[in-house]
Structures are given as structure tokens and as C-alpha cells.
Write a protein that binds this DNA or RNA. Structure first.
Lengths: 152, 152
DNA sequence: TTTTCATGTAACTTGTTTAGTTACAAGATG
DNA sequence: CATCTTGTAACTAAACAAGTTACATGAAAA
């Protein structure tokens, strides 16, 4: 199952907590994955201007805009709007009228579900996710993000 | 992409139009696929009692209940409730509080979308799909289902 | 200027899932 | 008993995300 959105949000919040630029290496360790995966995930966000990257000493990744100004819908689009719905039609543009009727019914429902998701995404900012994270940290009694992960 | 629901609905409506039992062979031709695919698709529906199958001469597939009594939700469940949403979490039960916050936000949205789909499915019967199909047939001026497919 | 660090990106491998295919056993009808 | 049809397992093919490896590019430090 596609976990790119989940992954990239995780990365972004870690970045936001990080003092100064965070390298792909650092982020990859926090996510138990590979630096190249981080770079691949972030490519679209960089192009859209949500994050910045720099090469060489002291380089790495930084937020380029405030968390308040970035919604989940922005992040989702920056990933290339990957498929949300797992069920599709057997064929688009079928000649068979039976299949047309089936497609019409399913399309209507799936479009509504997709619209619902995008609506909600557009109403959640990275800042609100960050607030939720800090609330969880208080609830647990952790003082730093470093206490909060052991590889995951 | 998973097109089993689309496929099985297509099969069911063809079956409903068919005089007497329809063989897997016949249905497979109408769907441009293989008889074994039809049998595999229908296995769950047979177990749930929505369709009947018979071996030997004059055998094949028939509806076991009126179209009016079968909803898309019934069919969906008979398929084993395959995944509706294509995006998931990187890991369930993460230790990382960042990931917990991300998961919570995504889960909430995805659950809502899934509930919306299932709600709609439960309100659409095979009979209503069939009515839509017949309306399309009238609109096109076809007199028989046989005019409506050339392999699809 | 040379070394080191870090990103950018392509290519390949792996794992998972659906669809399609083949083959054949089991059972029902003529 | 011959034929038809389902039931099911096993295999292949195609698609796709994720992980991995490798190396070119470019920036900072020594």
C-alpha cells in the first residue's frame, strides 16, 4: 500500500523540529529507511517551494514556508496526487452498456469519496499536525522529540 | 488497480439478462476474459447465497435472489471486502509520536471516506443498476443486450 | 586546489497484488 | 459411459511502491 503521504508528513514534522538543516541521512535514520527514499519523497515538495535543500557542508533540508501555510492537500499534490481510491473500473470508455452503467455508479461514489478526502486535506495544516504531536509529547511527559522514536 | 467489484457487477447484470443458466464460458466471452476468472470472482457470491451454480449439461450460473434484494455493499462484502483506500500508514502502532499524530490525522480522513463509500454501496441495489442499464439501452435504441457489447 | 560532505538521479532488486492462464479433479446430465 | 461444466490449485505476467546501490553534481571546509 502506498505510504508516501504518511512518510512525507512524518519527514516534514521531523524537519520542522530539527535545528537547522537536516540531512537525508539524519531523516532516514529517524524513519528507518534509506537517504535516497527521503530525497525521492521530497523532490516534489522542493519543486513546489515548500522545502529547500542545500548541498555540501552544513547542507540538508529545511522548511521554506511556515507550517501554518502548508495543508495536507498541498503536500498531497506535491507528491503528484497519487491514487487515493484502490478500486477502479475494468475498462474506461466501454462499449458495453452494462459496463457503462456499472462504471457510472462506481465513479459517482468514488469521486465523492475522493472529494471528501481532498476537502479534509485542504483543511488540515502541518501546523495543526505539529500541535497534535506536541500535545502527545506533553501527555507522555517527553521533553524532546529525541525521546519519541527508537527507529520508527 | 483492483477491478473485481466492477467486474463482478458486470457479470451479475449479464447473468440477470441471460435466459436460464449462463456458463462461465459464455460470461467470460462477454467480459473478454477467462472462464476461470469468472469462477474465481463468483465464489464468494455463491457462498453468500446470492447466486447458484450447477455442473454438467445445462449447468452454469443463475441469480439465487431478486436483484432488488442485493446491494453493492452485499456484493462488496462477498468479494471479501477488498481495500477501498489506496493510501495507508507507514507503520501501525508506531512508537514515534510524530508518526502517531500523522497516522491519527490520516486514519480519521480515510475512515470517513471508507464509510461514505460503504454507505452509498448499501443504498444501491443491483436492480437500480439494471434499470440504469435499460435506460441506456433505450437511449441508444438497442433492443437486446446482445447489441451492447463487442467483447467488452 | 583538494578533500569532504551532501544532494540529485538513474538503475536495479524485492515484495505484494491482481489478472490471466493452464490443467485437471469432481460431479451432473444425456 | 461420454460429455459438459464447475471448483480449485498452481503458475505466469504486469504494475507499482519501497528499498538499495552507485555515481555525478555542486558547495563548503581545510
Amino acid at each position: 500500500m502506498d505510504s508516501r503521504l504518511s512518510g512525507v508528513l512524518h519527514v516534514l514534522l521531523h524537519m520542522a523540529e530539527h535545528e537547522g538543516p537536516a540531512t537525508s541521512e539524519t531523516l532516514a535514520r529517524a524513519m528507518s529507511t534509506n537517504p535516497a527514499v527521503i530525497r525521492r519523497l521530497m523532490a516534489g515538495l522542493r519543486e513546489e517551494g515548500y522545502v529547500r535543500s542545500a548541498k555540501g557542508h552544513g547542507g540538508g533540508w529545511e522548511m521554506a514556508r511556515p507550517l501554518e501555510e502548508i495543508t495536507l492537500a498541498d503536500v498531497y499534490r506535491a507528491l503528484g496526487s497519487p491514487t487515493l481510491i484502490a478500486m477502479g473500473n475494468r475498462s474506461e470508455q466501454p462499449q458495453c452498456l452494462v459496463e457503462q452503467a456499472v462504471n457510472a455508479a462506481l465513479d459517482e461514489t468514488m469521486s465523492a469519496a475522493e472529494a471528501l478526502v481532498l476537502d479534509r486535506f485542504s483543511e488540515v495544516t502541518l501546523a495543526s499536525l505539529s500541535r497534535d504531536f506536541h500535545a502527545r509529547m506533553l501527555a507522555r511527559g517527553s521533553l524532546s522529540i529525541k525521546d519519541t522514536h527508537n527507529g520508527s
